[in-house]
Simulated assay, not measured.
Amino acid sequence: MLQPVPRDASKDPRRKRVLFTLVFMGAGGIERSVCNILAGLDSERFATRLFFHHRPPPDREDRLPRNTEVVWATDSYDYHRQSLPVYLWHLLRHAREADVIVAGQEGRAALLACLAGRLLNKPVVGMIHFDWGAFHREQPRRQLWGLRLLYPRMNRIVACGHDTARSFQSLVPVPEERLQVIPNFVDGDVVRAAGEGPLPDWAPAVFDKPVVIAVGRLEPQKGFDVLIRAHALARKRGVDQHLLILGVGSLEADLKALARSLGVESTVFMPGFAANPHALMRKAAVFALSSRFEGLPMVLLEALALGCPVVSTDCPSGPAEVLEHGRHGVLVPLEDPQALSEALGRVVTDEVHRKDLSRRARARAEELSATRALGAWEALLASL
């Protein structure tokens, strides 16, 4: 079981002490992005600590960076608004020992990081992961108010992509010199090693046909309803494929009902959370990203690293930036099941096209290496 590292582990006057904060250790791209940064920072220059409001679940402990002290406020996985003072009190204990505080995600993590920075007179860096131009329309109005209240008071803001930065700046008045773009990245070697891992027991029945795979939270943002409709259209045209959607969320019952209503429930597989999605992605014929909006999606970078052919919606923000407007994968319009179906069907049935997209994916993954992004993070943290 995961145990907090002794609290004096990061006391080294030669290294800058950096405290990253997250609400919990989820299975999404935000958590993977933060852990990738922590795993890559030069341990001779930076002493890092990762603070969670809630204890990391046991089945996700292996995703935590090994060179980082991990601490948390409560063993409970449940959130109660009245517990905010408890989270803040524990955060202040750890922030006193830090030189820089990094809010690893928007929302509650950013709120408490800002409060801790103000109370302790510590510099705060905020990370932006979403295209807020689209995302704020799905959120309570207080989320946008929170952005406009908190982020102009931070010392630096890091957006995960150029499109994300432009969208954020259109909503939140922050000085140009405080906003910096440092793209998300993945360690390709780690992703490919995970891709060589064993498949779960249920996988052989899925992979007896070519598989279209998608990974993400079962929420409206991810557009899995459009993907299921696209799959049904492909099956209707005679494309003999299976659709595998990995993830959990509030729309699970609705999506399964949609598959039943379209007569494709026997070819749509939704097994929930997968501890190692990369092994499944590596074996798939094509990776589908059907999102209505993103930031700079980690799962897309992971698909490229695995050489998985990519078909993505041209949503704000991220896919067009990552795929260079279609040079390294196929982009289709939003909310268009027919276009998505045709693009996926061609990859499944055209081996030459599929191999070309795989080659392009690997080439793009090499271009999006971690070295430049980590150098930018180290320079930023050292400057504060």
Rank of each mutant, 00 (worst) to 15 (best):
L243V: 02
E252F: 06
T48P: 08
Q221E: 14
F207P: 01
K283W: 10
D8L: 11
L380Q: 07
Q180P: 02
R49F: 07
S43Y: 00
A194V: 00
F207S: 05
A193F: 00
N67A: 08
H162M: 13
A113C: 15
N155C: 10
E138K: 14
D225Q: 06
P173V: 11
V322T: 10
A320I: 01
R237D: 11
A373C: 09
V125K: 05
H231Q: 12
L300K: 05
E335Y: 04
E138S: 15
A373V: 04
S167K: 09
V352T: 15
I228T: 04
V268A: 03
R237C: 02
S76A: 14
A253N: 12
E219Q: 11
L115I: 15
A361F: 02
A214N: 02
G28M: 06
D78G: 02
D208F: 01
E302V: 06
V102S: 01
F293Q: 03
I182P: 00
E324P: 10
V206E: 07
F185C: 02
Q139N: 12
T349Y: 00
L323N: 05
G375E: 10
L244Q: 01
R60L: 13
Q3V: 14
P183E: 09
G40R: 09
L289S: 06
L64I: 09
L304T: 09
H90Y: 12
L300S: 05
D336R: 08
F130G: 02
E378M: 08
L50Y: 06
L246I: 12
H242W: 02
L243M: 07
L280W: 03
R118L: 15
M270I: 09
F135C: 13
R49N: 07
A230C: 08
L262G: 06
D75V: 00
R260Y: 09
L2P: 03
T21E: 01
R292T: 06
K16G: 03
D336W: 04
A257W: 10
V248I: 13
L251A: 11
Q139S: 15
D356G: 08
Q82T: 12
P58H: 12
L91D: 00
G329C: 06
F269A: 08
I182L: 05
V332E: 01
V215A: 01
Q221K: 10
M1Y: 08
E321V: 11
A285R: 13
V181G: 05
V248A: 13
A230W: 04
P57Q: 07
P13I: 04
P175L: 11
S43R: 13
D8K: 14
A98R: 05
L374V: 14
I30P: 00
P319V: 07
P220W: 08
V124W: 04
G146H: 07
R166L: 13
G133M: 03
A373L: 04
W72F: 14
I37T: 12
R63M: 11
G195E: 00
P57I: 00
H129V: 11
P333R: 07
G329F: 01
R178G: 01
V215F: 01
R362A: 06
D208W: 01
G326A: 04
L289D: 07
E294N: 08
D225R: 03
A116R: 05
Q143C: 13
P183K: 03
T313L: 09
P13K: 12
